[in-house]
């Protein structure tokens, strides 16, 4: 077990102290930049609202990630088996990937029905998160060692045996790297989609962020941001842990 590096913790504490000191010293209005102590207060006072909202956002992000993994891997498998399909559809996938999600969001919201914000948010988050899964899975499936492939052909392995014993283990580390990227993106996708949907119907964290902004409750906005960052970090930590377990 690696020893915990204390440097980031120390740096964080110093930043917080400087932040707190400067806002007090310069008497910065709390509505522009609240001191960390005010953010902590807001976190405690509004925790009853913010935490469930964070739970909703995290739940949506996890669902979007799961869907992205399933869809991305499935499409990668189809592309790997049918190369002309990849050649034909690849450029259009790139177009979709390159289009800012904010620009597509209103369309998706209309198509999935105003009364279905949850569905719209999931679709948008999947559009953002599916591509790293797809490209990494595809790269992994193509990374099969030609020498090992000959061994499998020599022993007349069936395509199912080849898939389970050769392609899948080869692709796994690639896929995991893609999933790691996709996890962060699915969270971003959900937050952006919640913003654009502009409705509190799903009760996610970014709606609370917009709400607090409208009320000029800057400290609450920071508290929400803090929770978002925390979720992102936690996701990253969990996936890194899984990656280590698999590599070991």
């Amino acid at each position: 077990m690696k020893r915990l590096d204390l440097a980031p913790v120390a740096a964080g504490l110093v930043i917080l102290l400087v932040w707190e000191g400067l806002t007090r010293l310069l008497q910065v209005p709390s509505v522009v930049l609240p001191p960390p102590s005010a953010v902590a207060e807001a976190l405690l006072a509004r925790g009853g609202i913010l935490l469930p909202a964070a739970g909703v956002t995290l739940g949506l992000a996890m669902t979007a990630l799961a869907l992205s993994i399933m869809i991305g891997t499935l499409v990668a498998l189809i592309f790997a088996r049918i190369p002309w399909l990849e050649r034909g559809l690849g450029p259009y996938a790139l177009v979709l990937q390159a289009t800012p999600i904010v620009a597509i969001a209103p369309l998706v919201i209309i198509w999935s029905g105003i009364e279905n914000p949850r569905r719209a948010i999931l679709i948008l988050a999947v559009i953002v998160a599916v591509f790293p899964v797809l490209t990494s899975a595809l790269a992994g499936l193509k990374a099969v060692d030609p020498g090992l492939d000959r061994v499998f052909r020599l022993h007349r392995a069936s395509s199912l045996q080849r898939f389970i014993r050769l392609e899948l283990p080869t692709a796994a580390p690639f896929l995991l790297a893609g999933v790691k990227t996709a996890a962060g993106l699915s969270l971003v996708g959900v937050v952006v989609a919640e913003f654009v949907a502009g409705t509190g119907a799903t009760g996610g964290l970014s709606w609370r962020l917009v709400e607090a902004g409208n009320r000029l409750e800057t400290a609450t906005m920071f508290a929400a941001l803090f929770l978002l960052a925390l979720m992102g970090l936690a996701l990253h930590a969990v996936l890194t842990w899984i990656e280590r377990r698999i590599r070991a």
């Binding site: 060692d145 020498g147 090992l148 000959r150 061994v151 020599l154 050769l166 283990p169």
Partner: peptide
């Protein structure tokens, strides 16, 4: 058959 490389998993 043994190849030029060990070709192990």
């Amino acid at each position: 058959m043994v190849f030029q490389e060990p070709n192990l998993m």
